[in-house]
């Protein structure tokens, strides 16, 4: 474990890869790795790329990687794809679009399956980000699963969230809906050479006129397959990062991230203790049979832990 962590901190590919496996699968050693790695995190720029399936997220990511490499930045990529709700298996295919970087030592790409975690990310994505960060990657790109409307976890993690849109997916009412549309720091209107792209840009603009946030999202047109608009997009991403830095929102965002991480650990820890006590399955059955309300069920479980519920 000692070797693994020091290898990881030195940026060794295999150490990082093995450490990710441990952390992703909650294998023994996870806690020790994260404890040692945490103090070395906080230096990477976290970039989220999200949007509907087929919008071109992976192709855009590929081109953004190339551009970042041109700027001399090292890049880590976490590409999330869905797990089958039936078999638990997954086909992780985002890499297909990024294989030109397979032999570049400055790029490390890792695929993750959601494993039925909701919100657009895989369960242990945040922990894996810490490993990339400690291994010295300058920019970490998190490509979410193809999201529809409400998968907004990425915004709690990334410094800048790019929502990739394409023409032809719906009318202006879709754009006004809550959820994914609200989390964009930047809109990339991809496949901008297609019919309807101008209309989409105009509709986004109209929507943004009503946005009251301190930093208004910018819109960029891209044709990822041809590399069109990527330079402007990357410049826009870093410009957004600087504005966030200057506005003092960074501290707020960091606190939000820290709180979410704590909450996740609190949940895991309490669940672990509750399920290890026994009787959990029986309470689930009683609630299912309507013999107990969920509230009474929780009180019983907490009583087992020695935590009394105040009235």
């Amino acid at each position: 474990m000692e070797d693994l962590v020091s290898g990881l901190l030195a940026g060794k590919v295999r150490s990082l890869a093995k450490a990710i496996t441990i952390v992703e699968n909650d294998l023994p050693g996870k806690r020790e790795i994260l404890q040692r790695v945490y103090p070395r995190t906080g230096n990477a720029y976290l970039l989220g790329i999200t949007g509907p399936p087929g919008a071109g997220k992976s192709t855009l990511t590929d081109k953004v990687i190339a551009h970042l490499r041109g700027r001399g930045k090292t890049v880590g990529v976490i590409a999330v794809d869905p797990s089958s709700p039936f078999s638990g298996g997954a086909i992780l295919g985002d890499r297909i679009r990024m294989q030109q970087h397979a032999l570049d030592d400055g790029v490390f790409i890792r695929s993750m399956a959601t494993r039925s975690h909701l919100g657009g990310l895989a369960k242990n994505t945040v922990d894996v980000i810490h490993l990339f960060d400690a291994a010295g990657k300058d920019v970490i790109i998190i490509e979410t699963v193809g999201v529809g409307q409400d998968e907004v976890d990425i915004v709690r993690i990334a410094q800048t969230t790019v929502v990739v849109m394409v023409p032809g997916l719906g009318d202006s009412v879709q754009i006004s809906k809550a959820g994914v549309m609200e989390i964009a720091d930047i809109f990339a209107v991809n496949k901008a050479d297609r019919d309807g792209a101008e209309k989409l840009v105009n509709e986004l603009r109209a929507m943004l006129e009503m946005v009251k946030s301190e930093i208004k999202p910018e819109i960029f047109r891209t044709v990822a397959t041809d590399g069109v608009g990527i330079e402007e997009l990357v410049a826009g991403i870093f410009a957004h990062g600087r504005r966030v830095e200057e506005s003092g929102l960074v501290a707020k965002k960091r606190c939000l991230q820290a709180e979410n991480e704590l909450k996740a650990y609190i949940y895991d820890m309490i669940m672990e203790r509750i399920t290890s006590l026994g009787g959990y399955d029986e309470i689930v059955r009683q609630v299912a049979a309507k013999k107990l309300t969920p509230m009474t069920g929780v009180e019983k479980l907490f009583a087992g832990l020695g935590i009394a519920q105040e009235e």
Binding site: S84, G89, L92, R95
Partner: peptide, 15 residues
């Protein structure tokens, strides 16, 4: 790839 997925494995396909 699909058969392995349906058997519960995680499959990376690189084209």
């Amino acid at each position: 790839s699909r058969a392995l997925r349906d058997a519960g494995m995680e499959v990376i396909y690189t084209g």
